[in-house]
């Protein structure tokens, strides 16, 4: 686990988030959402500060972070790619699309490419089952993606 240094400004923002939730331990999940919004992910230092601010143990914070799939401790790529593996997408071949992304980017689910450009994740149903299989790159939604179409999607963001 690489140690990161938080800038004074970011640190203050993080503390402000905790203050905005009254340092209530019951608000831990809301605080983590905001913190992930601020940092893009939840590195150990961020969790330590949150633990201190909310007066809970770091182990507890880490236990919560690792319970929910929305929270991540690895920074996302510049273009986070999410492949929907909801049932509708699955029955229309989303698993093959995912395999192709893994192959082309040479990363596994949950990883970020060495150049930091792409990260790959799965999600369950974005509610666009009519477009199945669905892939999201950042906020952009790609529908009816075939394994063949994967390289074109990646190419769009390569440069």
């Amino acid at each position: 686990m690489a140690k990161i240094k938080l800038s004074e400004k970011k640190l203050q923002e993080l503390k402000d988030i905790c203050t905005s939730f009254n340092h209530e331990k019951g608000e831990l999940i809301n605080v983590l959402h905001k913190a992930q919004g601020l940092f893009g992910y939840l590195p150990a230092e961020v969790q330590e500060i949150i633990a201190k601010e909310l007066n809970v143990s770091v182990a507890h914070v880490y236990g919560v972070v690792t319970f929910y799939s929305f929270f991540t401790m690895t920074p996302k790529g510049e273009h986070p790619i999410s492949v929907c593996l909801g049932t509708a997408c699955y029955v229309r071949g989303a698993d093959k699309v995912l395999e192709e992304f893994k192959r082309i980017l040479n990363i596994q689910v949950g990883e970020t490419s060495a150049d930091g450009k792409f990260s790959l994740s799965c999600l369950r149903c974005v509610g666009a089952c009519g477009l199945a299989p669905v892939v999201m790159v950042g906020e952009k939604v790609y529908g009816r993606v075939s394994p063949d179409g994967v390289k074109d999607i990646v190419a769009e963001y390569r440069n």
């Binding site: 686990m1 150990a44 143990s57 182990a59 880490y62 690792t66």
Partner: peptide, 28 residues
């Protein structure tokens, strides 16, 4: 009330561990 341990992860990989699954020695 030491708080060195917590259940971490989910499902099959769920286990009780210190924060960041680091060594107990570095915990509280």
């Amino acid at each position: 009330t030491v708080g060195a341990l917590s259940a971490v992860n989910r499902g099959f990989m769920a286990v009780v561990a210190p924060a960041f699954e680091m060594n107990l020695e570095k915990s509280t």
